[in-house]
Design a protein around this nucleic acid. Sequence first.
DNA 1: AGAGAAATTATAAGATCGTATAGCAAGAAA
DNA 2: TTTCTTGCTATACGATCTTATAATTTCTCT
Lengths: 233, 233
Amino acid sequence: MALLSVDHERWSGARRWEVMLLAKQSVAKGRARFRREAPEDRRRQLGEAALRCIVKHGNAGVSVRQIAAEAGVTQGLITHHFGEINELVAYAFDIMSAGILQVLMKGVEEAEPTPQKRLDSFIELSFSPLLFDRDVLGVWVVFWGLILHSPRMSASQQGEYSDYVVTVEGLLRDLAQDEGFSIGDIRLTAIAFTALLDGLWLAWCLNPASFKPEQGVQLCRNWVEGLRRGAYG
Amino acid sequence: MALLSVDHERWSGARRWEVMLLAKQSVAKGRARFRREAPEDRRRQLGEAALRCIVKHGNAGVSVRQIAAEAGVTQGLITHHFGEINELVAYAFDIMSAGILQVLMKGVEEAEPTPQKRLDSFIELSFSPLLFDRDVLGVWVVFWGLILHSPRMSASQQGEYSDYVVTVEGLLRDLAQDEGFSIGDIRLTAIAFTALLDGLWLAWCLNPASFKPEQGVQLCRNWVEGLRRGAYG
DNA sequence: AGAGAAATTATAAGATCGTATAGCAAGAAA
DNA sequence: TTTCTTGCTATACGATCTTATAATTTCTCT
């Protein structure tokens, strides 16, 4: 899980440097000076290092030098694998997007197979520490800034957003069908629910004192209650 | 109006440079080489230049050199008036926040004095080209990024957000009282509505094809309808 | 064991960044 | 007209950035 690996490795800086030191020691003993890895693996390592840098320094963390240092490699390796740094960031965005949607879908699939429980699982997971996290938003804000100015990033975003909305759409449709209420425009309604989730995430991360995650869950349930009562019919 | 001035002056670059050229010509004729302005005025000019730079280049626009060039002054002037650049950015944030809330409140006050019309005016204005604008979000996203990493910016944000929520709270309270329905926790409910607005703003700016501003208005009205039907009681 | 492919390092060049400092000059006051 | 305050310019320094290039090293494959 991409997201988890980011969180886990955030605190493993020490271990990371130990590894490097060991590597340098082993040079003196005639061992390998660096590890040669499969491009696929290295690309992912660099992508995750980029995410860690962004978590730590925000926009300032988007830098070839910092990311290379974080990954424990030299700068040239980023050029070698990604050409320009924007490509690395876009790749990191894809990793993160996929990770988040995967976390959510896994939770939904593990819930009891009723539309109510599935949607509720989706909501609760959205407000769990795994996603409802300042650091996660910090990464996302950087991405938003890039999306607005980079066609490459924008293209990725459109796909990810579409997938997300379609997922929400399915959850809402199933609920409406099961409970027998009607929704005028399901796609639009899913967009609104998505917006509510994102807006609460944003508000809480920027101002954690304003409400508690559980209250966020409640507000989403209230929204669903409005849906039940036909406000979106 | 801060926001308007940003929008207006975005297209007045040519005029701005003409002024500079004239100023330089006049040097040859022995006239003033630069204008000496009151600190208050100059600070505002620099703040608005900063906003224009952010609109144009996003995070990359936050640069002493670029902002000074945009304002038609030398770099040292920013140091002189603000000390460090973060202070200028925070000032620009305050300008912009005040401008947005002012636009909204002016619209509300100009609406017919019924709770329904006032809230609806607030909603429609939120989705008008003045605020529902890619460039405006672009500026905001940069601010969000800074808020997450700067206590100074965070302090400003807490105040602005609080004002905003209190405003929404008042609009909702008046509506509930007038129509005789109940709201469990008005502050929380106002937070949810604010989140919905921000979320829709964000979604549309990142993906303008996903829905039309009028549809955003409708989704907000639907949310209010859910409120009426007691979903937040 | 040895050769070849390519992953990785090493190094440099050129921009741009933020900030500090010293001196100039605009415009009000006398 | 002359003085004085201070807004403003001019310039420099050191750090950091991106990107390009060539040399080196690892590791697989035969």
